[in-house]
């Protein structure tokens, strides 16, 4: 496990969260550097989504500290610079993609003109041009995922938190999303994403953090994980996390 350096954008130190008898996150320590792509990997119930919710300020940790740009994630100033894509692509079914972006853009304080131009750009970028007038209830799962990416990027955030972004995407869409993520990194954005898709993580991540039962098992660069190159991420994942399902 590596500690953060002075360029850390996001740090979690000894973060714990308990729900009743279940300790979802147990002394988690993690950091992300400015401009990197960190893959957050773990089995089902490892505490990934709980960690993400704490990063977004949905609730406070029971103990420990979370800092994003040195500030509390619950403040408006911090959240204005974060783009979030939820695991389940749930958006208002009675809206079109433009109306959805208009809504979220309004919540981010953007002007109507800014929203319009940015929406135009993003709708084309995520491959939803041509279905703008369709209501979201008529979108496929993959299309909803793309809509989710668009709304996460709408206000040009500096930090992207993506929860299972590759779920439901066809192979072409996955390639497009990978390219988009690399493009964003090249622009200086920081991306934090959780995934079960180890192959995708292997292709784009700078560092990975593996979590089991709410604790960081390993965090470091991919080449350190791969070691002599004879082991791939899947084998390392199984070795580190034991292949057991957590409660």
């Amino acid at each position: 496990m590596r500690s953060g350096d002075t360029m850390d954008l996001l740090t979690l130190e000894g973060v714990t969260k308990t729900f009743g008898d279940v300790r979802a996150v147990d002394g988690l320590t993690l950091s992300i550097r400015q401009g990197e792509i960190l893959g957050f990997l773990g089995t089902n119930g490892a505490g990934k989504t709980t960690t993400i919710k704490m990063l977004l300020g949905f609730f406070r940790p029971d103990s420990g500290k979370i800092a994003i740009w040195g500030g509390d994630p619950r403040t408006g100033a911090v959240r204005r610079r974060i783009g979030y894509m939820p695991e389940t692509a749930c958006y208002y079914p009675f809206l079109t993609i433009r109306e959805l972006l208009d809504f979220y853009g309004g919540l981010c304080g953007m002007t109507r003109a800014d929203i319009r131009s940015r929406a135009e750009q993003l709708i084309g970028r995520v491959g939803l041009a041509g279905v703008e007038k369709r209501l979201l209830r008529h979108y496929s799962k993959g299309m909803l995922q793309r809509a989710g990416i668009a709304q996460a990027l709408l206000h040009d955030p500096d930090l992207l938190i993506l929860d299972e972004p590759f779920t439901g995407l066809d192979p072409l869409a996955r390639i497009q999303l990978r390219d988009l993520i690399r493009e964003l990194r090249a622009q200086g954005k920081t991306i934090f994403f959780s995934s079960h898709e180890l192959s995708e993580a292997e292709l784009i991540c700078d560092r990975v953090a593996m979590i089991r039962r709410g604790q960081t098992v390993w965090c470091g660069a991919l080449h350190e994980v791969a070691g002599d190159g004879q082991q791939n991420l899947e084998r390392i994942f199984l070795k580190m996390l034991g292949g057991e399902e957590t409660a």
């Binding site: 949905f58 979030y84 079914p93 919540l107």
Partner: peptide, 14 residues
Amino acid sequence: ESRTIFPLLAKPVT
């Protein structure tokens, strides 16, 4: 119920 609360709360709105 529809879980649209999550992207809503992630926005910079109290």
